Simulated scan of single mutants.
Amino acid sequence: MYIETTATSDLAWQEGALCAQTGGDFFFPEPGSSVRDAKRICALCPIRSACLDFALSNDERFGVWGGLSERERLALRRTSR
C-alpha cells in the first residue's frame, strides 16, 4: 500500500507547473544569462503564486521561482521583514 508523505503532497502543485513541461534550463540559467524567457513562462503559469510561496518558504537561492529571480526574491524578503 502506498501512503503519500507530507513532503510529496506538499509538492503536488508542481505537477501543474508550466516549468515542468519546458525543462529547467530556462529557470536555472548560467550566471549572467537572461531570465526573460523563464519570466514569460511564469507569467502564464496558473500556479505561479504557489511556486513563489514555496521558494520564499524554503529559501530557494537559485533560479527563477514564481516569476522572480534570485535578486528579486532577496529584495522581497528584505522588504517583508
Rank of each mutant, 00 (worst) to 15 (best):
residue 1 M to C: 13
residue 2 Y to N: 12
residue 2 Y to D: 11
residue 3 I to W: 07
residue 4 E to R: 10
residue 4 E to F: 09
residue 4 E to P: 14
residue 4 E to Y: 11
residue 5 T to V: 11
residue 5 T to Q: 06
residue 5 T to C: 07
residue 5 T to D: 15
residue 6 T to S: 12
residue 6 T to L: 14
residue 6 T to E: 14
residue 7 A to I: 09
residue 7 A to E: 15
residue 8 T to C: 07
residue 8 T to Y: 10
residue 9 S to Y: 06
residue 10 D to Q: 13
residue 10 D to F: 02
residue 12 A to W: 08
residue 13 W to R: 03
residue 15 E to G: 11
residue 15 E to F: 11
residue 16 G to Y: 12
residue 16 G to T: 08
residue 16 G to K: 15
residue 16 G to V: 04
residue 16 G to R: 15
residue 17 A to E: 06
residue 17 A to N: 09
residue 17 A to C: 07
residue 18 L to N: 08
residue 18 L to W: 04
residue 18 L to R: 14
residue 18 L to K: 12
residue 18 L to G: 04
residue 19 C to R: 04
residue 19 C to A: 09
residue 22 T to W: 03
residue 23 G to V: 02
residue 24 G to C: 06
residue 24 G to P: 02
residue 25 D to F: 05
residue 25 D to K: 11
residue 25 D to S: 14
residue 26 F to D: 15
residue 28 F to H: 12
residue 29 P to F: 08
residue 30 E to N: 10
residue 30 E to Q: 12
residue 31 P to W: 01
residue 31 P to C: 01
residue 32 G to S: 12
residue 32 G to Y: 06
residue 34 S to Q: 08
residue 34 S to D: 12
residue 34 S to F: 02
residue 34 S to E: 12
residue 35 V to P: 02
residue 37 D to A: 14
residue 38 A to Q: 00
residue 39 K to G: 04
residue 39 K to W: 00
residue 40 R to D: 14
residue 41 I to T: 03
residue 41 I to G: 02
residue 41 I to M: 06
residue 42 C to M: 00
residue 43 A to T: 01
residue 45 C to P: 08
residue 45 C to E: 02
residue 45 C to Y: 01
residue 45 C to W: 00
residue 46 P to K: 07
residue 46 P to V: 13
residue 46 P to Q: 10
residue 46 P to R: 01
residue 46 P to L: 04
residue 47 I to R: 09
residue 48 R to T: 04
residue 48 R to P: 01
residue 48 R to F: 01
residue 49 S to T: 10
residue 49 S to K: 14
residue 50 A to V: 05
residue 50 A to I: 02
residue 51 C to Y: 05
residue 51 C to T: 04
residue 52 L to M: 08
residue 52 L to D: 10
residue 53 D to S: 11
residue 54 F to K: 01
residue 56 L to N: 13
residue 56 L to R: 07
residue 58 N to A: 09
residue 59 D to W: 05
residue 59 D to Y: 09
residue 62 F to I: 10
residue 63 G to Y: 00
residue 63 G to E: 01
residue 64 V to N: 10
residue 64 V to M: 07
residue 65 W to A: 01
residue 67 G to D: 00
residue 67 G to T: 02
residue 68 L to C: 06
residue 68 L to I: 00
residue 69 S to A: 07
residue 69 S to H: 05
residue 70 E to A: 13
residue 70 E to H: 05
residue 71 R to K: 12
residue 71 R to P: 09
residue 71 R to Y: 12
residue 71 R to E: 14
residue 72 E to C: 06
residue 72 E to H: 03
residue 73 R to P: 02
residue 74 L to Y: 06
residue 74 L to K: 15
residue 75 A to D: 13
residue 77 R to Q: 11
residue 79 T to G: 10
residue 79 T to L: 14
residue 80 S to C: 04
residue 81 R to T: 10
